[in-house]
């Protein structure tokens, strides 16, 4: 399989504290890669290095074919990013948000319009195109943030706890969107604390204290740890 993320011995130190300790993994094109771990295990730090937000202290890697140390700017053009904090502009309309981010990624006005209509149509949200984001429900905002992150058809989308505080039904719809995007060839790199979501991933890695302690498909992990579900796997590893 074509590898879109390759990381070897990636390390991040803050002073004497090692947040990410020599992690090594690969992610294939179109894969949904779950990046799990307890709070403070180093997930977010690792992800920031992959997105070019933070320089690694050691190790090497490529994202979308570009070096994470030297070609951060190139990486930024080929990825989408959705942060754990809701990060659309509340005082702009749904379409204005899409327009802004489309423009940031260099899309033409015509491409932005057709892509936006297309995406909104797919999630049956076209009627809210000109509603201020501040006045739509949280669940919809999160779905919208995902659409905005994929506006420019990036190769990889990084989702940092995208479903925090969202009800189970909306979460399921959200994951339908993720799977839809993956089936179209977008690679999904997602962190989450919901173990039922981990089951949806093609492969899952679990980080403990800066190390990757397990990395396999959910099915294989459950067999390996003799667990009924991912929740048990997680608890066994992290305790």
């Amino acid at each position: 399989m074509d590898k879109v993320i390759q990381v070897k011995d990636l390390t991040k130190r803050f002073g004497s504290f090692t947040a990410v300790d020599a992690i090594t993994f690969e992610v294939g094109r179109g894969e949904i890669f779950g990046f799990l771990g307890a709070n403070g295990a180093g997930k977010t730090t690792a992800m920031r290095m992959l997105c070019g937000l933070s320089y690694p202290s050691g190790g090497s890697g490529t994202v979308a074919g570009f070096d994470i140390v030297r070609e951060g700017e190139q990486i930024k053009r080929h990825i989408g990013y959705m942060s754990q904090r809701f990060s659309l502009y509340e005082d702009l309309t749904v379409f204005e948000n899409m327009q802004l981010f489309g423009g940031i990624y260099g899309m033409s006005e015509r491409d932005i319009r057709s892509r936006a209509d297309d995406l909104l149509e797919k999630v049956q949200f076209a009627s809210q195109r000109d509603t201020l984001v501040g006045s739509i429900p949280l669940g919809w905002k999160q779905k919208l943030a995902f659409l905005v992150a994929t506006m420019h058809s990036p190769e990889i989308v990084f989702l940092d706890e995208p479903t925090g505080g969202v009800d189970p039904i909306t979460r399921r719809q959200f994951w339908d969107m993720i799977r839809q995007a993956a089936s179209e060839g977008t690679t999904i790199f997602v962190t989450t604390h919901y173990m039922d979501e981990a089951e949806y991933c093609d492969r899952v890695s679990i980080m403990v204290d800066g190390h990757i302690r397990a990395l396999d498909s959910p099915q294989a992990l459950k067999e390996q740890f003799g667990a009924k579900n991912m929740n048990e796997v997680f608890v066994k590893l992290c305790r």
């Binding site: 930024k76 990013y81 659309l88």
Partner: peptide, 10 residues
């Protein structure tokens, strides 16, 4: 948090 998203962009 919007600044973070802007900084991840090119």
């Amino acid at each position: 948090g919007t600044m973070e998203v802007l900084l991840v962009s090119p």
